[in-house]
């Protein structure tokens, strides 16, 4: 049901999660988050159940293939190229520090990510999943990625780190969406990706404004804001 290549890709996604949790370098983080998104984008046609049937099937095969190709290109383009480019641009324009800092430290972040991954696998093994889904890594990988994104979101002091955490969380939800791919219309999927892009775009504009108003875009200073 789920093609064999999906599980190794999920392992790669989970390994990238650890890198995302462990790296303090902003450029590397943006690159890996982009890679994370692009990898999931490439998984979209793989996980698409109708792909083979439509391709080998009736006369509408070519149209379906083109539609799927365009959709994949849109997801990979937005998650893997557009969002990282916008973020790199923001780093350059707002003159943001090239290293992030974490409230709990990077090593504990990785450790928590490892424990969270274990907990995600444990939790997923107890979920009443549809037949064919329970032996694959999609559900635990989705939960672990959402958790990793959440950890980045709550522990990074810089606003841009939190934006990246938000993207990783969305990637986790996207992994879950791969399971529902046959039930979810194309427009919904594209809408979600575009929403994500607009969300990131707005956040980057806010980060830019914060950077101009204050010496650095660190949320630590937010508590000192008064009327």
């Amino acid at each position: 049901m789920v093609p064999g290549i999906v599980d190794p890709c999920m392992v790669l996604v989970l390994t990238l999660n650890f890198h995302i949790l462990g790296t303090p370098r902003l450029r590397s983080l943006i690159f890996v988050v982009g890679l994370h998104g692009a990898l999931l984008g490439f998984l979209y046609p793989v996980a698409h159940q109708g792909f083979h049937a439509e391709f080998h099937g009736g006369p509408a095969a070519l149209g379906a293939l083109i539609r799927l190709g365009l959709l994949t290109a849109a997801i990979v383009g937005i998650k893997g190229l557009l969002i990282p480019n916008v973020m790199h641009r923001a780093v350059r324009l707002a003159d943001i520090r090239p290293t992030l800092s974490s409230v709990i430290g990077f090593t504990p972040s990785v450790l928590l990510g490892g424990i969270g991954t274990g907990a995600a696998f444990l939790f997923a093994s107890r979920l009443p999943l549809r037949e064919g889904h329970e032996h694959h890594l999609l559900v635990p990988a989705s939960l672990a990625t959402v958790l990793a994104g959440f950890l980045v979101l709550v522990t990074r002091r810089e606003a841009l780190g939190q934006v990246l955490g938000y993207i990783v969380m969305e990637n986790g939800i996207f992994v879950f969406g791969l399971l529902l791919i046959d039930a979810m219309p194309v427009l919904v999927e594209l809408g979600v990706v575009l929403d994500l892009f607009v969300g990131v775009f707005v956040m980057i504009i806010i980060v830019n404004h914060v950077s101009r108003a204050f010496p650095e875009a660190s949320t630590e200073h937010l508590r000192t804001l008064r009327e």
Partner: peptide, 14 residues
């Protein structure tokens, strides 16, 4: 160094 070693440990855990 501890960060890299923790990373190796987490890879093993995974």
């Amino acid at each position: 160094i501890p960060a890299l070693l923790t990373g190796a440990g987490v890879l093993s855990l995974f």
